[in-house]
Simulated assay, not measured.
Amino acid sequence: MIRAIALVSVAAMLAGCTGGAPRMSQDRIKRALVGAPGVAQPSKVVAAELALARAVQEDGQWTAFRAFAAPGAIIHSRKGPVLASTWLAGLKDPVEAVRRSPDTVWMSCDSTIAVSEGRFREPDSVVGSFVTVWQRQPDRAYLWIYDVAVRDDPQPAPKAQEEPIGEDEILVTAMESIRGLVADCQRPGFERTDAKPAPPALTIPEGTRNAVTISRDSTLRWRWEHPETGQRRFVAEYLTSGRWQVALNQPLGAVSTD
């Protein structure tokens, strides 16, 4: 059975906002996140996303990404995945930072891994999508281990100028929801040998660089693909309603050979 958690959205931070939208305080958002039901709580990853988004604005874009990165985290550039510690090391924080917000979070039943997908807006109003994989740390905090961002091509038509967002406020349009989806968990009273479908076999084109990771409890699997030429890709699958389904199959733009 799919367990979906409706969470307060901050999607309007990115695009399509108007000055007439209601405002919601950080305290109300935090209360909504803490109160979300379930053992595996996508709300905790949403909280991490909100914290990262705020740190990007307050501490600096790349300073924040460094602070929220797990050891060994990678960024998927057009030339291929690179260690975040290497890629971020020489970058200075821009004067004005990107704004980003998740739309959907998929989490393994054991809560060790979560995939978030959402939208971003750059200072020049260029918009696009991002995918971030979050990993639960020994202290139970979530840090990101994979991140990729892709600009829309073509870009949408320009929208009206958005109202600035206050330091302690998040602009909310129509009280949209961030979807939180949790993979199937073992039913109480059933033995561990209770049949759990194995993840489907993978077919990855020859010559395509890739890495495949599965959660400890084998309920969520994700991978990146980077061919020699053509389209990069991110794919996440999870066990839901007793079978494996594709959660996200995201093209990531063309590979760069320069």
Rank of each mutant, 00 (worst) to 15 (best):
A160H: 13
D124E: 04
R151V: 14
A21V: 10
A141N: 13
Y142L: 00
Y142R: 00
T63H: 07
L52E: 08
S108W: 00
H76T: 01
V212F: 12
S85C: 03
T240H: 07
P156A: 14
R179L: 14
M24W: 01
T240F: 07
T213M: 08
P71W: 03
P188Y: 01
A247M: 02
D27F: 02
Q155F: 03
E228I: 05
R54A: 08
G20I: 09
A89K: 07
A97E: 05
T219M: 07
V115H: 08
W224G: 03
Q155H: 03
Q135H: 11
S9A: 15
G16F: 08
D59Y: 03
I204Q: 07
L88P: 02
Q137V: 12
L252C: 08
T18F: 11
P22D: 12
A73S: 10
S215E: 05
Q41M: 08
V212Q: 11
T132M: 09
L202A: 06
R100E: 15
W144V: 04
W244I: 07
D59I: 00
W106M: 09
A51G: 13
A236W: 06
R28W: 08
N249A: 14
D184F: 00
A141S: 15
D27L: 10
D153M: 05
Q155R: 04
V10N: 15
F190Y: 12
S218C: 11
S218P: 01
A211G: 06
E96W: 04
A51L: 10
K44F: 07
M107E: 04
V34K: 14
Q137L: 12
L239N: 04
S125G: 03
A211Q: 15
S111W: 02
E122R: 15
I5Q: 06
G189F: 12
S25W: 00
D168V: 06
R151C: 11
A53G: 11
R121P: 08
E162A: 15
G230Q: 03
L14K: 09
G128C: 07
D153P: 01
T18I: 04
V82K: 14
T63D: 08
T213Q: 12
N210H: 15
G180I: 02
P123D: 05
A174P: 02
I5G: 01
P22L: 09
P205M: 05
V98R: 08
R23H: 12
E167I: 08
D124Q: 03
T213N: 11
R100P: 03
E122C: 13
G16Y: 11
K92M: 05
A157D: 13
P71S: 09
